[in-house]
Each structure stands twice: as C-alpha cells, then as structure tokens.
Design a protein around this nucleic acid. Structure first.
Lengths: 106, 106
DNA sequence: ATAACACATGAACACATGATCATATATTCA
DNA sequence: TGAATATATGATCATGTGTTCATGTGTTAT
C-alpha cells in the first residue's frame, strides 16, 4: 500500500483517506449536522432532538444510527428514553474550522 | 431565522449549518479527498493529477470543478495546462483533525 | 490555417442516499 | 399481563451523485 507523509507529518494511505472521506460524508448532511450542533450544548433524547429539529422520530433515529456507526455519538438508556451524546473530541475542532471557512467566504 | 450561540461562541443559523454541511459533502468523496491530498504537496496540472490518482482525465476534471465551485481549489493557466492549487487556509486544519480521529479509532 | 495537445462539459447510466410509512423491540406502569 | 410510551429498523421511493463516453473549447507549434 502506498504510504506517504503529508504536511502534518502523519502517515497517509489510501485506506486512511477512504476513512477520512467516510467521516466527511457523515458530516455532509444538514440533518446530521443539526443533530451534532444540538448535542454540542447538552445530551438529549430522541424525542427532544426530534422536536428541536422539527423532524419525524424515524428520520432522527435513522440519522442517529449513522452517527452511532461512525462513532461520533453514543447512546445510553434512561428509562424509556435513549440519551445521545457526542463521542469524539475532534468534532468541535473540525466544526470550528468549517464554520470559519463558511463565515469568511461571504 | 433561529440564531444561537454554539460552544465556540460563533453565531449559528440553519443557513450557516447548511453551508457547513455543503462543505463537508464536498469532502465526502474519496476522489476529491485524494485530489486535495495530492495538492497539499504542490500545485499540479490535470494530467499530473490524473496520472497520480490513476483516474481518467474526465473524472478528474469533473471533480476539480466541484472543488473549484466550493472555492477549495483555484486554477491558473500555464500554456496548454491548467495548474491547480489549494485555495483555503482551513483545509489543512480540518484534514488534520479528521486524520487524527481516523487514526485514533482503530 | 490546421493538426495536436490539454482541459472542460453535457448526456446517460448505475448506484447511493434520505425521508416516509409500517412495524418490531424494549421499557414502564397500572 | 396488557396498554402506553420511546426508540429502532426494514421496505419503498424519489432524488442525488460519480463515472464514462462523446464532444466542445482553448492553446501551441508547424
């Protein structure tokens, strides 16, 4: 497999890049971005997320599944509810730079 | 429009989040990620990118168009060739954190 | 001018994706 | 146990996306 050093000094392979693209693909949807944004402030259950975003429970659940599989959020049970929380330290940093990019290009 | 403050203290609207999702959507493709990665080291023309990635000239051109429209790369003409270069200071930061995330979760 | 080279672009097709609807699973409470 | 609540999931469908093929545009050199 091709191994190079990038400008950050980290090893880079096509497999790594594939995972990077996968990560960004998960971020590349407004519903999921809004879910993540909502979870920045506090942990929330599905119905709260559903109400906050104004989307169906099913749609929210489906997208939370995508976020779970990408290990970006985690869920814990509290009674009948599932409480979701962010599960990655890098999300905030990644989002900060993305927002700066967006804010500057207007 | 709903306006909130996020954890970074930046104003956040659904319109902003939409642009953030759009930005990530552009990053969410292996071909485009590989193009960006190739341009981290140096400016390159289309045929060089085509050869480096092992993809058709057409496929590369199409994806470079997407990157251009997202203002992530810029093109300048040199003779018969078009030289592409990165056009955003945040790309490297965003990619660095994405790579760290990927590297840690294995 | 015209041939050759480098790149861009439109059309078409296969595949991926997100929302909805219906239904299944899990928990609590009467 | 059975009803109500909360969430997950499978199927379906409309839409979006990436590649290829064919062709158009722009530049250089003879």
């Amino acid at each position: 497999m091709k191994q190079e050093k990038d400008t950050n000094g980290l090893p880079v392979s096509d497999q790594h890049l594939d995972q990077v693209a996968d990560l960004f693909r998960v971020f590349g949807d407004l519903t999921r971005v809004r879910l993540i944004e909502a979870l920045f402030c506090c942990d929330l259950c599905v119905q709260d997320l559903s109400a906050t975003l104004g989307l169906s429970q099913s749609a929210v659940s489906h997208q939370l599944r995508v976020l779970r599989q990408a290990r970006l959020v985690r869920a814990r049970r509290e009674g009948k509810s599932m409480i979701y929380s962010l599960d990655d330290a890098h999300i905030e940093s990644i989002f900060r730079y993305a927002k700066e990019h967006v804010a500057e290009s207007e």
